[in-house]
Design a protein around this nucleic acid. Structure first.
Lengths: 343, 343
DNA sequence: TTGTACGCGTTATCAG
DNA sequence: CTGATAACGCGTACAA
């Protein structure tokens, strides 16, 4: 029983239509498009001309079902609009595109349950690989991911063994390096300002790095030197005032995010506090390429190679899909202490 | 009855496996999952329990082929990592997600041919709707889009009739409004700094708005007052110095992008030039929520409701897919002159 | 070099 | 409320 009454002139063009018009079989059309080498020159030209004439666009849905290859990679990041994640995904997207793969993108808002829900939804599309930000996932999500037996790349931190592959940097090591830098510069009363560490793994690890650096030098961390604040320029500014007007009176403040640091710098400009004389300021991560570099004064910060992380992550997926062995499965993209005028 | 306990080596679970185990047909499994209302309580519970047990994840590729519904929306934006686009796409993503749709995302880098190539590639996935940034597309792309007969939303500018639907703001009107604001404030020697207008339609339209405002007041635009520079804080800073040290000596500078304006402000801080006394500075678009607000001094700028644009665009696609009539097809999301201290 | 037969996993249709 | 059957449009395997 016919489901539809398709008239030849209506609806989307199918491979069958091209085949009929070019007087070949559908498989020849398929080959002319995707394995042109194995089709005779004249045939290929005739088929491709017909494809042009009819404006045929292959149906990847049908092709995927048949070949069991979807050419799709799923990615889930916390926020699409934040440059930290967006820049990484842009690089991933570029690598995938160059390799004929397409990007299915979703955002979790840093919620593990939302991530799990998205993972299930995306797996229904049968992606050939998956990219996740962060190392924490619900048990259900983990199980579904492993069961899918597709290559998976996690990003965000190097601290735990990966589901499959990881490309990232170590928040702890990077924060320790910055603290060492400040200590080497002679600062001794260093405060550390982060987002609430209970809710933010990365900031927790950065704080750990900070504390480790202090301990290694025999410096006891003062509770007054550890602040947890909400996100935003304004809160960075307020935190700085609170610290400088408080009893701890630090000579340097290490902010676990660049936005907070720049907010603090703006406050210094408003109040006429000189940086780094009155207080040195250091940040973490270049959210925008020129953001820290053009601040007044230019901000000393930890640069995380976001684009490089995305490129590596994308390439690892691509290589695995090509059957190449990918070693190591844990890739450290590193970081860089960018010493500028603020500290 | 044979009980099969799935082991990872047995490959993906199919609907058939669930059906066998639950002693129903595949169609009943399908209904239990997607039309639970029309299945008997006991049956539905039994099926869903089996789904859980086997960790079954429906195959949307097969479902799409059969039902001719992919649940996918394709979107192409210039850059994923830039907040202007990222914030819009985040909002789109949220709306789609809430409606069971998935996002296929690509970036064109502002190249029309790359956009056209991506459009063709994405159409192969048979998306149910398409979202494009910008109003210019190659003839081939236009033809393929129209032939696909799917709802299309364009964003970026309101100037031309849309392929299908548009949600945006008017660059010309917004820039004119800001210029009027500056004129009302008493500034008369206003310079306009943009990216190269040949390569950037939006900046071209903003400049038109600027010039229109001047003309309406009988002011003749001075060629020295129109600068075109590359992107980046640094170039905004250099442009400001060039203008103030040149022969035109403006009393106000309107930058066609916020980044340029903030770069100029930073230069003023470095040189000790007071804003707005020495020179007033105005920007265009809040790229980051707090960016302009926390600058020193706070930046007067045009706010474009990026999230709202994304929400509206997503909702228009959703409504059309639901068969609802969407009127009007041209939606003006408007803008807001945010008057702060810099001008 | 090209073609035939079949199956991919699901849903639409219609019968029970 | 449930099921048998036939598509959906293409690629794989094998044949010619």
């Amino acid at each position: 029983v016919a489901r539809r009454v398709p008239s030849p002139s209506e609806g989307p063009v199918r491979m069958k239509d091209v085949a009929r018009r070019a007087r070949v079989s559908t498989i020849t059309v398929s080959r002319a498009l995707f394995q042109p080498d194995i089709v005779a020159d004249a045939t290929r030209r005739r088929v491709l001309r017909t494809v042009e004439e009819l404006g045929y666009i292959p149906n990847l849905v049908a092709g995927s079902l048949s070949s069991n290859r979807t050419r799709a990679i799923a990615a889930i990041i916390p926020y699409i609009g934040k440059p930290v994640y967006g820049r990484t995904i842009q690089a991933v997207s570029d690598v995938l595109r160059a390799n004929g793969l397409h990007l299915l993108l979703g955002s979790s808002g840093l919620s593990l349950t939302e991530e799990a829900s998205l993972i299930a939804a995306f797996l229904a599309h049968r992606p050939e690989g998956m990219l996740l930000h962060g190392r924490r996932h619900t048990p259900e999500a983990r199980q579904q991911l492993l069961r899918a037996s597709i290559p998976i790349v996690e990003t965000g931190d190097l601290s735990a063994p990966p589901l499959d592959m990881v490309v990232s940097y170590s928040n702890t090591v990077a924060a320790k390096a910055m603290t060492d830098y400040l200590l080497d510069k002679g600062y001794r009363r260093i405060a550390f300002v982060s987002l609430p560490v209970r809710k933010n793994d990365r900031h927790l690890r950065r704080r750990r790095g900070f504390l480790t650096a202090l301990r290694e030098r025999g410096l006891a961390p003062d509770p007054r030197a550890l602040l947890e604040i909400p996100s935003g320029f304004r809160h960075g500014a307020e935190a700085l005032v609170e610290l400088l007007c408080g009893t701890y009176a630090p000579d340097a403040v290490f902010f676990a995010s660049e936005y907070l640091a720049v907010g603090a710098q703006m406050e210094c400009l408003r109040r006429g506090w000189s940086v780094p004389e009155r207080v040195a300021i250091a940040g973490f991560d270049d959210q925008e390429e020129e953001f820290a570099a053009e601040a007044v004064p230019p901000l000393t910060t930890v640069r995380i190679p976001r684009e490089e992380i995305g490129r590596l992550a994308g390439q690892m997926l691509v290589d695995r899909l090509a059957g190449k062995p990918v070693e190591p499965r844990v890739v450290n993209a590193g970081f860089e202490i960018v010493a500028r005028a603020s500290a």
